[in-house]
């Protein structure tokens, strides 16, 4: 069992795919859980914008359907993050990461604004091409070692090629790229703090998890 994040506290078995929780991953898991709860419980804030060239200001309004959809995507994203935190199987992990990526795109894409959609499309392209390094990395690992289970790989005796690790890291960076590139606040133009936070939280968490995985295997 991996020792890098501490001893595993408990193990959930789904056939060949284990979900295990070390002190490290359980910390991440709890955080994801808390923020998912927040995304469910809290209503979006009413953003105040200042009208340009005057001292008037107005509060942005969003439709109920948009809010509902983004909340749904945020919850999906949260669940995917929860899964990715515990997953003890490389391919399963990459699938969870892809789910995080697509849910992030969903959160961004629901906003009815040309700039936001532009950004969402670019992120979407990256998230989609990032599946190549992700799946490629998992495939390289299974081809060179014959197993996908992280605990088995961590137990040692396997020479995981460096390029497979690089693939995994690069893929996760690609899937979780969107929030880091909140360059001109594209994603943040519309109200909906709980959902946008879910978006960047999930990216950070999958990144934290892949670091653990890459060091462990």
């Amino acid at each position: 069992m991996p020792d890098i994040g501490g001893d595993p506290l408990f193990v959930l078995e789904f056939g060949d795919i284990l979900h295990y929780y070390t002190p490290y991953t359980i910390t991440l898991f709890l955080l994801a859980l808390i923020f998912t709860g927040l995304a469910i419980a809290s209503r979006p804030e009413r953003q105040i914008d200042i009208a340009f060239g005057g001292d008037a200001y107005y509060a942005k309004e969003t439709t109920v359907s948009e809010m509902r959809f983004r909340r749904f995507m945020a919850i999906a994203c949260g669940l995917a993050t929860l899964g990715a935190m515990g997953s003890g199987d490389l391919f399963n992990f990459t699938l969870f990461v892809s789910l995080v990526g697509i849910a992030n795109i969903g959160i961004v894409a629901a906003v009815k604004n040309r700039h936001v959609l532009d950004a969402a499309y670019e992120y979407g392209i990256v998230a989609m091409v990032a599946t190549l390094p992700l799946f490629g990395g998992a495939a390289l690992v299974v081809a060179t070692t014959g197993t996908l289970a992280i605990p088995a790989l961590a137990a040692g005796g396997f020479a995981v090629p460096l390029v497979a690790k690089a693939f995994l890291a690069l893929g996760v960076i690609g899937e979780g790229m969107a929030p880091f590139y909140a360059a001109k606040a594209e994603m943040f133009r519309a109200p909906g703090a709980p959902y946008v936070i879910m978006c960047s939280l999930s990216s950070l968490l999958i990144f934290l998890r892949v670091v653990e995985i890459v060091i462990t295997i």
Partner: peptide
């Protein structure tokens, strides 16, 4: 379905999410 069923769960969820979008 059996030994690697969790993969399939996630994968159908991805399809579901993408289609929802």
């Amino acid at each position: 379905y059996n030994t690697r069923g969790a993969d399939t769960v996630v994968e159908t969820s991805i399809l579901f999410t993408a289609f929802a979008i």
